[in-house]
Design a binder for these strands. Structure first.
Lengths: 276, 276
DNA sequence: CGCCAACTTGATGGCTGTCAAGTCAGGTGG
DNA sequence: CCACCTGACTTGACAGCCATCAAGTTGGCG
């Protein structure tokens, strides 16, 4: 909507607070940046060596092509939990591929309200919102200690003109982001609280599975408030629905540790519009 | 909320019915396709001659570059009100630039629920959701008699590798779609009904203005139900809020004819999170 | 002129937000 | 090592916004 210019003050505060909770906040962030400048951890930074190469940007490339990509994606950045990878308003220079860790992105409204627009994990690309206006329109925050590969965008565009496979795949990655957003709009526009949480859990489970983790058991990196923000619910509602799911025997919840005990009823929640 | 009790079939019906109302439905669509095959209306189909070239794909291109684009974007397609430009599941071949007219896109959930994901007008690009999976994930329907320029995607990618300016601009167009989706997620996740409608009206006004139409006065091409679907509301709520806005003197509503009488309070609705 | 879809408006109810209190877990400092 | 403190979470009571159900009006079209 037209309502997109991000605001001035209030929410920055909220966000800052959250940041301080999760890690050491901005202070930590700056320390780390300084540390990086002193000794950049360029440890084994090649796509060609990366275990994620089939679910990340290099998907489908030949050996020769991946080696070309290596020259563009040459540096990494480490982030501690709570650090910002980028902030709304900062100039856009690069995309980031998540090597390890877990992120959230959120956008701000003028009046201070904000919303989590996504949770990202290994192999996913961050920063595509920044291409349109040459600066970022949302914040990206590490929800656990993380490492990202820096993909300078101007160089990437050069490479896309050379490597057709990469070009097409990059377009697919951007398109997938659009499709993903549509499904969240669907969730926000038509689903009830239980359905939203079920969809959320199933989505996480599926993405963890794709990365070799257990489909039934995982650790939530985000707070109830962040889940609620993402799903258009209040944290109390998230908590209540988790409790209800537990009472029904669908899942077991211990703080941030989730175990899916019976996946069928969760899926059914999404298949049926309502109980009648 | 999730109380969208329209089950697996009702909604498909609604959609079909709507189609038939607005134009001549599928029947008409097929007739038109046939007609196109017999005498393709390739009337003046050059980006270089198009009045929309600055807000559409050719934005920022040199004369020479636009002429190259002309060879790729060589055909148009006319659609009557209610006709589908494409449907979810159809194989993806091309993007479409709207030359004239007005569209909606909507996605379906397995259980039959659907949601309008956007309204598109002249100069905007349709079909980018299809890139990721090689087939469309949503329906695009003309809400008035319309004309689109067909942009075969494989050819476009070839061109993007030749013309750096075009490449960058195309990435910006895709990114803008992502940013737009984020602001709708924001709307759906955090705004109340009045705020949603205000944002909706202001957004339409702004986009009409950018196309040389009146900022204060315009004709809604979509039904209350489609507006509601887009904004995550029921049609009755849309109607009630329109009435409330009219009582307050913000707008005048006569069916689909909207006149904005006092824009300030509409903007204020978006600036203030709440009444306290 | 009659039909039908689109729309408006009213009455009612339910889902989820709000407010409030209390519990739990992890980290810090004595 | 333990007590304490803080933030995250849970749970309850209540209320409000919007959905639902229902009836009636309007406007376009055959």
């Amino acid at each position: 909507m037209g309502a997109s210019s991000e605001g001035q003050r209030c929410r920055n505060h909220d966000d800052g607070t959250l940041t301080q909770i999760k890690g050491s906040g901005d202070h930590g962030a700056k320390q780390n940046v300084i540390h990086l400048t002193i000794s950049p951890p360029k440890t084994s930074c090649a796509c060609s060596q990366c275990s994620l190469r089939e679910i990340c940007l290099p998907h489908g490339l030949s050996e020769k092509e991946i080696l070309k990509l290596d020259t563009t994606v040459a540096t990494r950045r480490r982030l501690k939990r709570g650090q910002h990878l980028y902030r709304a308003g900062e100039s856009f220079e690069a995309l980031y591929a998540i090597k390890t860790g877990f992120f959230k992105t959120d956008t701000l409204l003028e009046d201070g309200r904000d919303q989590v627009t996504g949770f990202q994990m290994a192999g996913e690309i961050l920063g595509m919102d920044g291409i349109s206006a040459e600066n970022h329109t949302c914040n990206a925050v590490a929800l656990e200690d993380s490492e990202v590969c820096i993909i300078p965008f101007a160089q990437l565009e050069n490479l896309l003109r050379e490597i057709q496979t990469l070009q097409h795949h990059f377009h697919q990655v951007m398109s997938r982001e659009i499709v993903r957003d549509h499904s969240i709009m669907m969730l926000l526009g038509t689903m009830r609280a239980e359905e939203r949480l079920a969809a959320f859990l199933l989505n996480l489970s599926q993405r963890f599975t794709a990365r070799g983790y257990s489909p039934q058991e995982f650790h939530l990196r985000m707070t109830r408030e962040e889940i609620g923000s993402y799903l258009g619910l209040k944290l109390e509602t998230v908590s209540r629905v988790f409790s209800r799911f537990q009472e029904e025997g669908f899942i077991s919840v211990q703080q941030k540790h989730i175990r899916i005990l019976n996946i069928a009823p969760l899926k059914q929640l999404l298949a049926h519009p309502q109980q009648p």
